[in-house]
Design a protein around this nucleic acid. Structure first.
Lengths: 187, 187, 187, 187
DNA sequence: CGGTAACCGAGACGGTACGTCAAGTCTTAAC
DNA sequence: GTTAAGACTTGACGTACCGTCTCGGTTACCG
């Protein structure tokens, strides 16, 4: 018989999520233990195991609930400027330690669904912006917008994950410039 | 007193690396234990701890020694074709389960050095090819070749890590076509 | 605030006692859990904790209410025969699985009061019979009747508890014969 | 693969047995936990589980190794005196808290073998003494010596287990006197 | 060529955390 | 307004591995 979500103690739930986030920030993911989360949250281990199967989903919930929130800004008329701003936001988000820690592990565990949930919103914003630019003729009509979005965010995520080089704003700007050249008729 | 590499038993060393690779393939990284490696290799645990500090480096050595080998082919005159071939090779490599498992965890543990060592060779090949194309005028002289290489491989690695979509050869071809347009004068 | 016995649900009370007895018979004492009793009785755990402090008293009540009942028979004139019959009855009682289980644990927990309540009646019968025999001269007047009763039942209970040997009727008969010799003038 | 007794650490073994005995004396059996024993002995839990399956056998070993030792005295010519001394020794032994606690639980768990091992020696001494008295004619030749021993020790053990009355030396003396009367020709 | 120093297999050791179980307490919805 | 249901904190369970250690035994270098 599954636990009865209606009876769930919200106080415990929030204490657990907060504790998990604090600890993952302090210790990193692999040194984080369920026992420590329970202790810091002032909660029985069973209360964690009742509602989450393991560390991964727990941290995912913690991040979704208490994590960084997107700051949507209205698009200006300048495609390059808009994309540059968007990529800088993404970079800033990735730099937050708790977000970084949790996302890395979700990537590692191949939790596609969760990754998608956390990273996709950024991508959707980029794609939307590209599509509207395409309607205005700033982007050639034969361009695959979703591939273009992947091109923009891909190099960024790669540097984040692989740490091959620092994630500077100069870099993201350069990526935007380079990709936009591929998308437009104008040289 | 540091271990004396001269006396090292090569039989044991190889048995350990083989066992590690077999087990990581069968169980995945996180369920792989040193004890299991020792047992399967018919080796004392101490013999592993004597030569490797932890799972990560052990698997790294195993991969480097027994892992996939690059198949270098001479560049043809066709830049697009060369890049497409190169990216397909990279994709094939990433698809190998043992390589995949180990690389993911190295990424996760932020072992930059190791990641670099495993993934960089591919990138160097791409960069070299772009540079020679730049000399021949197929790529504009103001293009940052290493940024371009990152653009090419970035989206590929991203799909691999995030599993946002299947890593098909159609996709890699499309990426090459899109990026090359950004790099060349010709429309 | 103590529970209000007047409001007590007799249906629940009986269901609990029955469930307890069934389960102790099936599982033995140590594997019996309050949770299982509550579940089988279709009762909340609190309803058990409201009325009983722990497993021991609960089972004691169960036994007292639903347990074996004594079959009193009138004394005949033959002391030896009467005692032999009485000891056989006691042995039969001890052999009942649920009685055995519960009594053993009460002994273990040193619940003197409960032990007394359960085992004393048998002893009283024996003492009464010996006392009347003493009045008739079948037992020497200087004999301590309660010590004699202890002698008779002691070896019996010892075999039961320690399982040093099977509890046969031959054995109880032999005990009676042996003890009676100590109690009477006649050789 | 069973543990290799040759490699066993005697220091740990003794520390565990000592800790177990101290704790059972302080807390009683049911509140004694393996975790507490391990902690007090400065030992990993696994080291206990490696060598003992559960609390019972562990405490049994502790008692056998560190428990009360029998003080054998040579029989005098006086049967009654010898038996009285022997029963007093038995009573003294049962009064030791750690012995009491452990024996009670062994009785409860029906560990016949262990009970036998701990309690039988006393009984053997009694039987031997009775047998030699039988050879000398102090005990009638038709008496079942082992039944007689049970009579002597049975009431004693019963009082111990059931706590029906205090285990005084007056009581054990009275038992001896009463039983001896049953065993001898002389009134 | 015999001694000795390192490696080797094995596995016991003190630990940490696991995930489970039941105890006994507290809360809630329904009857 | 007591009950059933069940979530809660607590704490021990027994297991799995960790990384260290000690044990004989077996090489393989060195005097």
């Amino acid at each position: 018989m599954p636990p009865d979500a209606a009876r769930r103690s919200d106080r415990s739930r929030r204490a657990i999520l907060v504790a998990a986030l604090e600890l993952v920030e302090a210790l990193g993911y692999s040194k984080l233990t369920i026992e420590a989360v329970a202790a810091r949250a002032g909660v029985g281990k069973q209360t964690i195991y009742r509602w989450w199967p393991s560390k991964g989903p727990l941290l995912f919930d913690a991040l979704v609930e208490l994590g960084p929130v997107g700051h949507d800004s209205p698009p200006s008329g300048d495609l390059a400027a808009d994309l540059k701003r968007e990529l800088r936001l993404a970079v800033g988000e990735l730099a937050e330690r708790r977000f970084d820690q949790v996302c890395r592990v979700l990537v590692h565990e191949s939790r596609t669904d969760l990754v998608t949930l956390l990273l996709m919103p950024r991508r959707m914003v980029v794609e939307d912006r590209l599509r509207s630019a395409q309607r205005l003729g700033d982007v050639r009509p034969d361009v695959d917008v979703s591939a273009a979005a992947e091109l923009l965010l891909g190099s960024l995520y790669q540097r984040w994950l692989l740490r091959t080089a620092p994630l500077t704003e100069d870099f993201t700007d350069a990526v935007v410039d380079l990709v936009l050249r591929a998308l437009s008729d104008r040289p």
